[in-house]
Amino acid sequence: MSKMMAKGFAKKFAKPLILLAMVVVMSILQPKAFPTLNNFVSIVYAISLYGIMVCGAIYPMLLAGVDLSIGSVAAMSGCATVMTIIKYDYSGKGVFLGIAFGLLLCIIVGLVHGLIAANFNVPPFLITLASLNLVYGVAQLVTNFKTIGCVGPPIFSVIGVGRLWGLPAPVYILAFCTICSYLLLRHTVFGRQLYAVGGNKEAAALSGINVKLVTVIAYILSSVCAGIAGIVLASMNQQAVATSAKGYEADVLTAIVVGGTSLMGGEGSIQGALFGALLVGLLNNGLRLMSVPSTYHLLIKGICIIIAVAFDIRSKRSDDKKTEGKPLFKVKTSAGGMN
């Protein structure tokens, strides 16, 4: 096999191989705890949540932005939904209104993020960091630090706890979100425009693309997916609390970056991000089984992000190195890049 063929082979199969390797390693390290049905189910639940959030959080990142507020937004939407359900006496109508209200709040938050990011020269990480705290504060205020229990009605519990053909409902919701995001990114005009704006904002504007609109929609999608995850979480736990999704943004961010999305925009895919989510889910599970306390997770994940981003930046920089005159410009497409 020539070198080129070997490289192509490696690129295509790298991701599944890494996953396989992880599963094997963890089965060896924890032969009693890891390969059990129960454990797989809990992995599946966790990955569903990350995955749903990833489906939305990828949009701002494709625009070279970021949404750090997704954890708080998820919690807020869960709380809003549950509180509405309780207000309407656990009726079916309450469930619909609750979900609608929760998602509406997310749309508003995303709209604000998008408008600020589109119209002002404020770094997205700052906007969404401030928003993370602001929304968290609102959630705390409204729930008064209390955990709001919500057992039922069945229409609501089925979202988080229900099963179909053996698989938990969140998996189907994840599948739905993934398919929607995949279609949106790969097969719609909006998706094309998103990659264009992320790849070269000025060229996109000169091509008649409404850059502001694309930005606003991207942030709305991010918040809405966070909201969906929050509602699923509330249903799963049968309760809602302001801290329910605290820290999720770290995992989601790691998943997206490890999955091949560039921080500088214009490059990345849902498949890659989902692979990242799988990886992060497995990693979390493994660390937990080995009784590694949760703050070591931060340590390891922190290092993972650093490595992933460092690689991404190095590959971009080697192209940008001071080349003279008018030479060919080499664009490296990492596995999962959109072409």
Binding site: V122, L129, A130, N133, Y136, G137, V138
Partner: peptide, 16 residues
């Protein structure tokens, strides 16, 4: 919680 809300709002408003 008003602390968090106000701090977040201040940061956003001032950077805008």
């Amino acid at each position: 919680s008003y602390q968090l809300i106000i701090k977040g709002a201040i940061i956003i408003l001032m950077t805008i």
